[in-house]
Amino acid sequence: MAALLQVSELSKSYKLPGHWFNQKESIALEPLSFEIKAHQTLAVIGEAGSGKSTLAKLLVGAEIPSTGKIKLNGQTLNSENFKQRCQHIRMIFQDSGTTLNPSLTIKKLLDEPLKLNTNLNEKNRNQLIRETLQKVGLLTDHMNFYPHMFSGGQKQRISLARAIILKPQVIILDEALASLDPSLRSQMINLLLDLQKQMGLAYILISHNLSIVRHFSDELMVLSNGQVVEYGKTIDILKKPKHKFTQKLIMSQHFQLLHK
């Protein structure tokens, strides 16, 4: 199967303030390359400031890369086809449940991306909103509710509904599971796994929780200081971590692959 998303030599550096003849650069991300197929999950781990969020921002097009290419289905993405990118690569943040606009009903919240990115008429949009709500385990009656009427887990489902309503191919989960309560978290993991099966979604999971990384991902990339220090099958890396940072993280979570 061909790769869904191909990233080659992608990098980002920021110019630091200074004179033009004396300008320094700070490198947020050294050139990196990877591929993801449909139905696959790539986990990205790394300490704060290691470049995880920069990578996410480059992929969704919120930042312009300094070098490198992103290809989706073999087609190069650039800043001109931003609309197309918005539709195919979506992102869910850690607190996206709490950042829903409180003055809009769920219907309006979900209608927004449809209006911006599609030419569907109102009837078709409503139909799609209903279907999407059902997919994430909510009721069609919830359309006329406001965000404050939902629990934390339901809000997280609404932001997931918002992310999948455009039928994306890639979803980036930026610590989206971190602050959830355990029982909500397992419900959310199940939901994401189901959707991956149904829709063939590829996920990029940015997370600290190694047990979730182990359970949820096929491949793993470890970032440190803007560099890829390990990349391969999740299970192989967790079995034999080579880099100091990976070893430290495994130690700090008392992570074990087998219970003894």
């Binding site: 999950t41 355990p182 029982s183 978290r185 397992s186 993991i189 796994l193 047990s211 979730i212 182990r214 359970h215 949820f216 096929d218 999740t234 299970i235 992570f255 074990q256 692959l257 087998l258 219970h259």
Partner: peptide
């Protein structure tokens, strides 16, 4: 429900 306590669960 915890992936940590159920390490023998098949991946995904």
């Amino acid at each position: 429900s915890s992936p940590k306590a159920n390490i023998e669960l098949p991946v995904k």
